[in-house]
Design a protein around this nucleic acid. Sequence first.
DNA 1: AAAAAAATACCTGGAAACAGGTAGAAATAA
DNA 2: TTATTTCTACCTGTTTCCAGGTATTTTTTT
Lengths: 211, 211
Amino acid sequence: MLDNKITLAIVDDHPIVQEGLQKLLAGATNIIITGCFTTGADFIDFLKLHPLDIVLLDISLPDVNGIDLCKEIKKLSPATSVLALSNHSERSMIFQMLQNGATGYLLKNISGEELISCINEAITGQFAFSPAVKEILAKPSANELREIPKLTKREKEILQLIADGMTTSDIAGALHLSPLTVETHRKSLLQKFEVKNVAAMVKIATEQRLI
Amino acid sequence: MLDNKITLAIVDDHPIVQEGLQKLLAGATNIIITGCFTTGADFIDFLKLHPLDIVLLDISLPDVNGIDLCKEIKKLSPATSVLALSNHSERSMIFQMLQNGATGYLLKNISGEELISCINEAITGQFAFSPAVKEILAKPSANELREIPKLTKREKEILQLIADGMTTSDIAGALHLSPLTVETHRKSLLQKFEVKNVAAMVKIATEQRLI
DNA sequence: AAAAAAATACCTGGAAACAGGTAGAAATAA
DNA sequence: TTATTTCTACCTGTTTCCAGGTATTTTTTT
């Protein structure tokens, strides 16, 4: 009987947001709100028992983080589209959610019309973003980028091997170099990254997709 | 005079692909191919002199890698939409390109119709994916996931600090623990991650978004 | 209430990393 | 063809890490 209706759940720990969303969606007669939850655990319990088309998911919940919850939702019910709802506008956050199965990303300044159109987009399998998110995604990547150190070929090579867990002498063996040479490169790397040990370096390099 | 025409360039080192693309696009009267290039450098030279709406970019070129080239394109000409064209269907590759400014990702098995519709989508500012890519993106993230070790609270905390470049005694000071305790946790972490040093651990942890 | 898991702390010894240099050869850029 | 960068290699010494344990207390789960 819900044939061409969209079933939707809201997960957000702020009552005001819950109310607001319900009001914004009141106009859309093809959308039925089948549940409102304030914790990830409650929602998961619900999802185990009911099929669902869309979930509007606040990604800063008290009990679990948005990324883990999103993964769990998609594992439990792949057909359910997750629209992340958030105040965080960092590119990295957006991509993290998408990478973990979200179908869209909405900032909370979204209007009612925009929200409804995003839901309809998501239902057709498209990615859906609120206008503010689209703007962020449209910008090059000039955002919160730290200065990425310019590495030489050798340095990149050695950085890669360090991140794979190889020791200086391992690397020297693999590249047919003196361990002392590898140490020199390692030192240059630490200097360029402005860190004191490889742990910090590997974190940055991995985040920046240098490796 | 090109008011409602889409200007498009092709960058691919395989002549066959170049020809194929041109043929596929021949039917679209609103698309004008303004350049064909076989190297990233050639294309960049062109882009410095000519405005461009769309570039179909092969991401495995002989001279530069797709990610760097994409970044450079967006830096040089933010208005130009980059549609990545590739044989690589790994999720990580797709997201890397998007993260670095690509507007879409197409696998080379795309049909003419699909290609044209993707270009039109891209022009309106939307992300565009070929059907095969959509399928890949639709799958949960069950793909190339390694077993994520289950960490205790303390371990997560210490992992985070290790990744920030702190030494064992730094961490001990920060958490008001004995350095020996921190060492014990550090050892448990290395065991759980099945690695031999923190460099390898931090790489995995960063990739898996544990930190 | 018993069992399991997590957090705490200790010991020893060897391996590796880090800090601070110098310096010549080879490749690239100006 | 100079300059500059990159790659190579060395030296000394200190700090930190890692591997191999053991063991008590506190918390959580059953």
